[in-house]
């Protein structure tokens, strides 16, 4: 299955969008159904342990967070991240134990691959995005190719496409909301500090 789209966000710089989309905490908070999203080192990921050790308390994100702290925890090229994603699809609500690998990350482009498995379903995906500066803001061009297996796959594109669109739509809506806060946070000089990072 292939999905793609372009999201426009007005009055932001590509550096701000880049920083936001590089922040695992921001991503976790913006992705509907995401229980945790953490960097992992081990080949075998113990999701039960991660689930137990995850807390509801997240570090601060933009605009409150220190951009340098975000840069510190940002996705790294070749990094692996574990996430637990609960998504309701039709009559089922599988929790996907997902491992994402950042395949390539070089401003303004990032590619990632991922695999998720739940009790009766699983998926494999490759995805990417590129930021394009426009006259009044930034366009995020994104794409994803997903292979879906098992019970969810059986529901067919008729069911999966709206779910995928809903997840992606809400994700970018929240990112946009967060970035709006960045713009209104002018007095702190955040924008300058973000651009200073690049």
């Amino acid at each position: 299955m292939e999905f793609d789209g372009t999201v426009s966000i007005a009055d932001v710089t590509s550096e701000e969008v880049w920083l936001a989309l590089s922040d695992p905490v921001m991503i976790k908070q913006s992705l509907p159904g995401c229980q945790f999203l953490v960097a992992v080192d081990d080949e075998e990921v113990d999701f039960d342990e991660l689930d137990e050790s995850s807390t509801d308390e997240d570090p601060e994100t933009l605009p409150a967070a220190d951009p340098e702290a975000i840069a510190e925890r940002a996705f790294v090229d070749g990094g692996r991240y574990a996430a637990l994603m609960q998504i309701s699809v039709g009559s089922v609500e599988p929790s996907f134990e997902t491992v994402v690998t950042i395949e390539e990350r070089e401003f303004p482009r990032m590619d990632a691959s991922g695999e998720g498995s739940a009790a009766s379903s699983s998926f494999e995906m490759a995805s990417g995005m590129e930021l394009v500066e426009t006259d009044d803001g930034v366009e995020i061009e994104w794409w994803a190719e997903a292979d879906v297996f098992g019970r969810v796959a059986q529901m067919g594109q008729r069911v999966i496409n709206p779910v995928a669109n809903r997840v992606v739509g809400r994700f970018f809506d929240r990112i946009e909301d967060e970035l709006r806060d960045v713009q209104t946070d002018e007095p702190s000089g955040l924008r300058d500090r973000v651009s200073g990072l690049f």
Binding site: D147, V148, F149, A153, Q154, G156, R158
Partner: peptide
Amino acid sequence: YDDNGQLTTGSMQD
């Protein structure tokens, strides 16, 4: 079936 052998017509809706 899709390229992975997943049945894409697995119900009376499909």
